[in-house]
């Protein structure tokens, strides 16, 4: 006899919940190994630099394009909403604060999460299905030490650096639009930036991007290591890594915003 539909639904939800808890457990165990092998994993400085180059320098042009247009759109949108309500001399400050607190860190993390998360998951997933991870273990080389530590640390270091770069480009994008199509003078825009710049805003964005880097590196490695099967498995791992990175970046953005602006930078 066919199962009663609600009972099947409950079983499905319960199974999904168990799977999710198990996955959180496995990620936690991997992070424990990252901490355990942090120092030995960084002994090979060359591997760290190689990953920093792949994550940071390799993503530069993508970040430039995304940031430039983000700043430009922010200027157009802000100008539209300011019309007849707020003087245009505040345009620079609105772009500045929205970029360094929110848009810069989050959009950079989403872009890098898509590009780097996918690339890490695909590389490690291919290594898993072609027995390269087993070959490392057979040589008594812990895969977390050799593969995960350099990638996670490189992501944690590079995300804040790229975010600073992204912030600058976005503010420049807003500047170009402000003086060419909105009619704000260069002096007004830059003066607005100077008047409303707060160091704690920059710090809050950088602290967030530090955590985002950890999330992207960890998700890429975790889903790469969890790959099963062949090419299809690698494709699935890549998709899971990108989706998990993006979702966790957005959730942690909310949590961090609460912690940073309600407690740490509340005054």
């Amino acid at each position: 006899m066919e199962d009663f539909l609600p009972a099947r639904g409950v079983r499905f939800v319960r199974r999904r919940a168990f799977d999710w808890v198990a996955e959180v457990g496995r990620v936690t165990l991997m992070l424990r190994d990252v901490v355990r092998f942090l120092i030995p994993g960084l002994r090979s400085f060359g591997r760290l630099v190689q990953q920093m180059n792949a994550i940071g320098v390799g993503s530069l042009w993508l970040v430039v394009v995304v940031s430039l247009f983000t700043g430009a759109v922010a200027a157009v949108q802000a100008a539209y909403q300011f019309t007849a309500v707020v003087p245009m001399r505040y345009l620079g400050s609105v772009i500045l604060r929205s970029v360094i607190i929110e848009l810069g860190p989050v959009l950079t993390a989403l872009v890098i999460g898509g590009r780097v998360g996918a690339s890490i998951a695909a590389e490690l997933g291919t290594m898993k299905v072609t027995e390269q991870i087993d070959a490392l273990r057979a040589m008594a080389i812990h895969p977390v030490r050799y593969l995960v530590v350099p990638r996670v640390v490189a992501a944690v270091i590079m995300l804040p650096i790229i975010t600073i770069f992204s912030d600058a480009i976005a503010i420049f994008g807003g500047y170009v639009v402000a003086i060419t199509s909105i009619g704000v003078s260069s002096h007004t825009y830059t003066q607005s930036l100077k008047d409303f710049f707060l160091m704690k805003d920059l710090w809050s964005g950088l602290i967030k991007s530090f955590f985002f880097g950890g999330i992207i590196g960890t998700m890429g490695c975790f889903h790469g290591f969890a790959t099963e099967g062949g090419a299809e498995g690698v494709g699935l791992a890549t998709t899971h890594a990108v989706v998990a990175s993006c979702v966790l970046v957005l959730i942690s953005d909310y949590v961090l915003a609460n912690v940073l602006f309600r407690f740490i930078f509340a005054a």
Binding site: E131, R137, H142
Partner: peptide
């Protein structure tokens, strides 16, 4: 545990079916 196993594994060499060479 993995640490003790690593000490044992250092006495072994293994040739995998696909050779499992590191592509990078």
């Amino acid at each position: 545990g993995e640490r003790e196993l690593d000490a044992v594994r250092r006495r072994f060499g293994m040739l995998f079916q696909s050779a499992a060479l590191f592509d990078s």
